[in-house]
Design a protein around this nucleic acid. Sequence first.
DNA 1: AAAGACATGTAAAACGTTACATGATTGC
DNA 2: GCAATCATGTAACGTTTTACATGTCTTT
Lengths: 185, 185
Amino acid sequence: MSQTRKIDMVILGLLEHENLTGYDIKKQIDGSINFFWKASFGSIYPALKDLEKNALIKKIKEDNPKTKREKIIYSITPKGREKLIEWLKNSKSTNNLKYETLLKLFFGGATPPNISLQTIEEFEEEIKENLSLLKIYQKNLSNVINDKDHIYYYLTVSFGIETYNTYLVWAKEAKKLLKEINNLQ
Amino acid sequence: MSQTRKIDMVILGLLEHENLTGYDIKKQIDGSINFFWKASFGSIYPALKDLEKNALIKKIKEDNPKTKREKIIYSITPKGREKLIEWLKNSKSTNNLKYETLLKLFFGGATPPNISLQTIEEFEEEIKENLSLLKIYQKNLSNVINDKDHIYYYLTVSFGIETYNTYLVWAKEAKKLLKEINNLQ
DNA sequence: AAAGACATGTAAAACGTTACATGATTGC
DNA sequence: GCAATCATGTAACGTTTTACATGTCTTT
């Protein structure tokens, strides 16, 4: 009676779009949903085995068998598609955040203000990097505008870009306030 | 060679501000850092034991021993404070997000647009609730403006309020787009 | 008297990361 | 020829949640 493990849904969702290997799946996760979901090989490969055992996905023959490198391409089954749709339609979403940056800031009173300033600056750098990646991703999206999934990719990327922009605005203001405090001491 | 488990830092951070029982710690987590960090009793009590074993925190005598209900108040030790400061100063922060809402939206192409619309509306409701709680929290903060930790609480709450507002703006726009698509079909 | 909050704790299960192991293929 | 990337997989470890167990105190 396996519950809907989230990594299973990620895999089913990606396979619904196109057939992929475990390695491909990892790349897609890193490339496009990375900013709100992460996964490692150590969770992907075991999940693929489980999903295949339960007939939610199946291995498909490779057209090019002359290579010696093993490569297993998976495709979603009707049963898998059902499971994916069931999850999309009828489950409550849980959004789980672990912001170590905010945790540190919350406890910032234990150190001089310049430590918190550093924490925020580190955060800013990270966000700026992620933001520029997201913008590249968004630009690439405009090339595939006819894909039926386009709108959904667009909406998720927009979410990322807009929240990251807000983070940067907040960070700027937070730094200003902390600097004032720093000077008063 | 225990690594800096995050729950340990949460506990040390809270105890740096004031002495608390395990139950209090849970309440504080639920009440003030809940929007970016969660914890259960099942992680708090074992962590308290470990921290005490390592002399990072210690039990303090209760002034009112006439009650039969067991109640263990903990306070941070100098060694604990050192550990907290070390973490604040010298560790890289990792921010980990698991947005099931975005995951569903990203895979929205597998269902009709109104399913994704529902997902967003559910998200909106959740955010609105959280936002009003944060605003109450922010209001209460203005009463303790002289506390040295005030600025840090203020900055974290501001982060929450500002990102939640952005979420709502995004959600409105996303709904609009999805409704257009829904009508075109 | 009952419900709900206060209070602590444990055990099992789930889940995921890290690190390792192994080898093929591609690009410089 | 070497490095990087492609490709799959496992084992150990650590963390956390869920569910349960137990009992007290307060409020209605």
